[in-house]
Amino acid sequence: MTISGRAQIPAHSEGNPGDKGKAEAMTTATKLNLRTLASSEELLAPGHRLCAGCTEPIVVRQVLQVAGPNTVVVNATGCLEVSTTLYPYSSWRVPWLHSLFANAAATVSGVEAAHKAMVKRGRLKEDERMNFVVFAGDGGTYDIGLQSLSGAVERGHRFLYVCLNNEAYMNTGIQRSSATPFGAWTTTSPVGSGTVGKSQPRKDMTRVMAAHGAPYVAQASPHLWKDLMRKVEKALSVDGPSFINVLVPCPRGWRTDVELGIGLCEVAVDTCIWPLYEVEDGRWRLNHKPRVKKPCVDWLKLQGRFDHLLRPENAGALAGQQGQIDDAWESLLAQCNAPQRGA
């Protein structure tokens, strides 16, 4: 414990993780090849306590591979935070700050503002561009942290906000959030004689962020790592706020086999439940179009949280679900195919 008594843990990697010469932040897409990645330093150390099969750390590693060691991470309360920093251990080889559940975006606003002040006053060098990255769950983003995020994006702070979207409050034991899809079982949207799981469709947070006019907004999935990392690269290059919503399957909360994680991502994209797209300075672009659009049953049947939807008596609800997905997909296609600003 340090003298000041605050939970403050030096990173425990061998060598100097902050050595700029060793692990340079990737700045060009050409570096996104497996050989470079395999030899570059891991900034999230192994030994954390996330569940077997959890996809959150995969995304964090992909993001940090691009962001590099000159990065400050702000983490909202949630699975990632509690599982990577159990005092006196820490998995983080970059500076990491956790304050609360609702305030990651406001907290990073302060970090970024202080950085600006110190550069302005000559206490930090301008040429060493520092990255500010937030990791927050869907609960910390769509729900309790929405105001904080909205404010920070509107003010235009330079930071990348990565939503680790596992479609529920997992850290507290699988409760619904506004990212939870229609029909999903959670402990606060249980399946009962009068309900088929969550009775509302999920909020479209990526669109909400795009509507803020943030210079870079995207949806990504870790199974298409190159796409995800290229998005991180773009996000970090803009001079303002950026937002990437990443689907992170949670075997525990979704009631799936542990080894399914990344495979589930692929199905989510192929069923158009999780389309990959980006909004760059207001221009919408689809990044991946499935060769064959699969029915949503292919997605639902892999997860215990949707079991009840496949029962004959719930055929109506299932059809409704497919209808919602189709409508959202058509609307996204229309948006991406429409004449784009500046194009």
Partner: peptide
């Protein structure tokens, strides 16, 4: 000199 601040 990365530190972890606000651990559990």
């Amino acid at each position: 000199n990365p530190v972890t601040l606000g651990a559990i």
